[in-house]
Each structure stands twice: as structure tokens, then as C-alpha cells.
Design a protein around this nucleic acid. Sequence first.
DNA 1: TGTACATCAGTGAACGCGCGTTCACTGATGTAC
DNA 2: TGTACATCAGTGAACGCGCGTTCACTGATGTAC
Lengths: 195, 195
Amino acid sequence: MRYPASETAEKHERILQTASRLFRRNGFSGVSVGEIMRATGLTHGPFYNHFASKEALMSESMEHASRGSIGAVEKAGESAEDLLAHIDEYVSTKHRDEPEQGCLLASLATEVSREPAVKPALTQHVSTSFSHLAKVWRRSSKKVARREAIHALSSMVGAMVLARAVDDPELSDEILANMREALRQSIQGTVAKRG
Amino acid sequence: MRYPASETAEKHERILQTASRLFRRNGFSGVSVGEIMRATGLTHGPFYNHFASKEALMSESMEHASRGSIGAVEKAGESAEDLLAHIDEYVSTKHRDEPEQGCLLASLATEVSREPAVKPALTQHVSTSFSHLAKVWRRSSKKVARREAIHALSSMVGAMVLARAVDDPELSDEILANMREALRQSIQGTVAKRG
DNA sequence: TGTACATCAGTGAACGCGCGTTCACTGATGTAC
DNA sequence: TGTACATCAGTGAACGCGCGTTCACTGATGTAC
């Protein structure tokens, strides 16, 4: 049957929202189209009224998640204090235990490296993140600022990936606590100096 | 038909070898049992003479890959020079482009975080790696040594994950080059001091 | 304003496919005598 | 040393299952007159 036109866009949005959460929790290959539609409260058939394929949804949901989180990264780039606050949130047990609303790089980057269709969306997100974060080192040279931004973001992603993959809760907590401390030291050291 | 007993152990080893390469290249869910057996030169039936399940193979192949690579990590822990040499190999375009013989953390850690059966093997690998790498900071306190080891390994893994996920070759190269430089700076700074 | 009809998002059964896994069977090897 | 037979890794057809995707159909909505 036909439905009010106004609902279509809203449903599209809800599918994206659900997909981006489920993908971050279980990975692209760990979630079926049917599951996403069921979780959205629809049957699986009309999926193809909204998206050309699962691959297309993967890419769009990545853009959706990026739009939803890039604001926090921008804020983190405003000052060393903002960056340190962002790091404390990012490199936390809460973020480790709740991937579905967390960083898309930590949950999906490895799978994206095997899914060419999703790479452009992720590349955009990474590139923008570096630019935002580099602003923290505005008193240093562009070269140093960029290097430190890359170092910081890579460390955060790597620490989260390892903390989630490890079985031993103590080791996992230790990875996060040490990384927060290491980043704090590193940032306080580099932001102060001129490059 | 029955085959010489001597061949059985050798075939088991070959399956592990093939699996650990294919898993690192395409991920656990990106490789089927049939593909692994075919690549090993066997039919898929006898797989279950060697392994209880695909999950069991995933775990054993992780241990196999760990055994094959932990020596390089041990070597890296011998001195700051050895660590820097290891970093130059690890954070390289060659390693980025050849995941099948590369670091299992960079290729598989995210998937392992959703595969409880494989976590113990990976945890062991991570734990041992930290211990080996921490030796580089033998003149610092245990606490600082461990923190720097965690920082270094997480950065390396994170940089590799991002470099592989990104579409733009220039950005990817830039991530690697900057991370090598950032790690060099960081290690030269911290190894020199006492903690 | 009321009526007739075209639209098209949603429905849900069905498709082909590849997956992990099972199993009755084969036959060279290894062993008992 | 020679023969008879039990062993068991390898064979390959077959299994049930869930996947991504398709499609003939439905019927309330929006539109033409």
C-alpha cells in the first residue's frame, strides 16, 4: 500500500541510524540486511526501495556516522584541554564497551580496508579528523602539527582496537589507562614547544 | 584411503600456514573452509579430521602466526636501535600492502573482539609483545617502560589500520611516514631519560 | 466537494548461492601371525 | 619373508541454513476532472 510521502525520508534516516549502530557493534559482515530492517521495525523487502545494495548502505551509514561524530573531533581540536578531554572520553572503558555509538574507525576500519566501496567515506572522515586535531598544535609548524595529530589519532584507534580484542580485563584496562597517560605526556610536551 | 602417518602432521601444519595467511589477507569471515583446503591442495572433507571447527582453526592459526612473528618483536625489544629498525619495517608501505604475512593485530584484532574463541590466543600475543618491547626502556621505571611499550605498539597498530583503510595513496603514505617520525622522536626522547 | 483511478512504498514468499558441516565410502598403509 | 586384515586420512556428494536480492501483489494516498 502507499504511505504518506513524508514518512519515506524519515524511514530512510532510521534505517541509516540503525545500520550505523549495528555495523559498529557487529561489523559489516556480522549484520544482515534482514536484521537491520527488523531492528528498524520494517520488513526486509522495502530495503531495496531505499538502497541499491548492502554495499551502498554500508557506505551511506559510514557517512551518517561520520556526520554524527565529526563535531566532537572538531571540538577536540580547539585547544590542548579540549583534546585531552576528548581523549579521556575516547580512551575509556565506556567507549570500549559500547562500540555501537563509538568511533567508526575503531570498529570498522579493518573491514573497510577489504571493502573498496566504503573507503571514500572513511577516507573523508580520517582526513577531516586530522585537519581538526592538528589545530591544537597551532603554535607549531604545519608539519609538526600534522605529525602530532596523526600520532594522536592513530594511538587512540590502536589502543581501542587492542583493548577490545583482549580477553583479560586487567590488561585491557591497563592499555587504556597507560594510553591516556602517554597521550597526556606527549601532548603536554609537544603543544608547549614551538616546532 | 590411508596415507603415511608422517604426512598427517605435515598437512596439519600446511593448513595452519595457509589459513593464517588467508585470514590475515581477507579476515576470518572473508575466507571459507573450502578455500583454505583448496589453497592447501586438499579437498574440503578432511578438514574435520584436523580441526574441530572453523573457530578452532581460527584460534590455532592465530597461535601459529604468533609463534612465527614473536621472534621479531623479541628482537625489537633488545635496544632502541632494534626497536626503531622494527618500526621502520612495521610502519612501511610494504607491510601495508602485504597483510598476509604481516602483523596479526593490524589484520585481525577488530574481528577477534567479536570472536570470543580467538581472544585467548591474541591476548597472549599482545601480552608477550608488551613485555618484550618494554625492555627497550630498561633504564626507566617499570611503569614508564610499560606505558611507552603500550603507546608504541598501539600507535603502530593504529597507523597500519588507518593506512590500509584509506583510499588516497598520498594520505596513506603520509600516515606511515609521520608515524615513523613521531615514534622516532618519542622513543629517542623517552629512552634517554630515566623515568 | 465528490468520484475514479493511477501511483508506489510496503509485503512476504521465493530465488540462487555459498557457507560450515556430515557421512558412507575408498583403498594404501601398517600390523598380526 | 609372505599373507590376511584392520585402520583411518582422504573423497566428494549431500545436508540444512542464512544470506542478498527479486518480484508479483496490495491498498491507502494523492491527483485529475
